[in-house]
Design a protein around this nucleic acid. Structure first.
Lengths: 146, 146
DNA sequence: TTGTATGCAAATGGTTTGCACCTAT
DNA sequence: ATAGGTGCAAACCATTTGCATACAA
């Protein structure tokens, strides 16, 4: 449960930038979206809330939201970038449901053993990405039914 | 060391498809490239070897090489897809040098503990991606010098 | 007021595709 | 012979950008 200062319509998601009607609506649209979304999907939802908001503004806003860590890029789908707001604060990775696009935070599986292996190869690790794919409980049920 | 049937100019990389001059040159160009490459970079190298090969052909050939597992997509750089031939046969991931683009195969760090965690969240894992970034030995030296 | 933000439309750039012409098999 | 491959150029499409206008602070 986000505190007020962290609410979708609050300003912290955009850092010190000016708050505008469009940015408020975009942040709220993200907050109402469960799972991953493309810019185009988000723009559609935004347009339903505020007819006048242009696509370029959505692109610019999401870039800011990503910069502040409020949303994360979690891959791509059909040539479009995928974003999600999973809400985790600390270092984490993602569990992606390939059925419905739902995103859950996942713990980091990298341990000392792996770092050692990298060192053995002469590498100095600086960053990493881990993404798990699967079916969430609901989609498993759906699969059994269908 | 690849056996003859698996050589760059051999046909196995393209499966049962017809072997052509262009495909032979493209596979050889990939084989001569150390580290990751974009289609554009590969196309340049190919053009140096055979003036007439078009970019579309390189795109089509790489799609086939990826399909056969001869090359792998290992991320993107500046909006372009990145590919690499790391040569590992079994399940593996990648160690990417952010300095020179060199790619090394890396063991899979996913263990039973992680699977359990996913199950606890109700997920049924079906796939995953792990990519490690860092500096290879040569680039570390380079960094210290520069 | 005034520096930012927005909308629109045009530009960008990677990738794909249609088509008439080649060429392995 | 003929199904499949190629080059070229045009088409596609997600994303970015220039610019005149609108607006938060």
């Amino acid at each position: 449960m986000p505190c007020e200062g962290d609410h979708a319509s609050g300003r912290s998601a955009y850092g010190a930038r000016r708050m505008t009607t469009q940015r408020r609506v975009i942040a709220q649209a993200v907050d109402e979206t469960r799972g991953a979304f493309t810019i185009d999907e988000l723009a559609s939802r935004v347009r339903r809330m505020d007819r006048t908001t242009g696509t370029a503004t959505v692109y610019r806003a999401v870039a800011h939201l990503e910069e502040s860590g409020w949303v994360e890029r979690v891959g791509e789908r059909g040539g479009s970038a995928l974003y999600a707001r999973c809400g985790a604060e600390e270092h984490h990775h993602h569990l992606v449901c390939t059925g419905c696009g739902r995103i859950e935070p996942a713990a980091c599986p990298l341990d000392a053993g792996l770092a050692e292996e990298a060192e053995r190869a002469g590498f100095l690790l600086t960053d990493h990405e881990v993404t798990l794919y699967g079916l969430c409980a609901a989609c498993q049920t759906e699969t059994r039914r269908g």
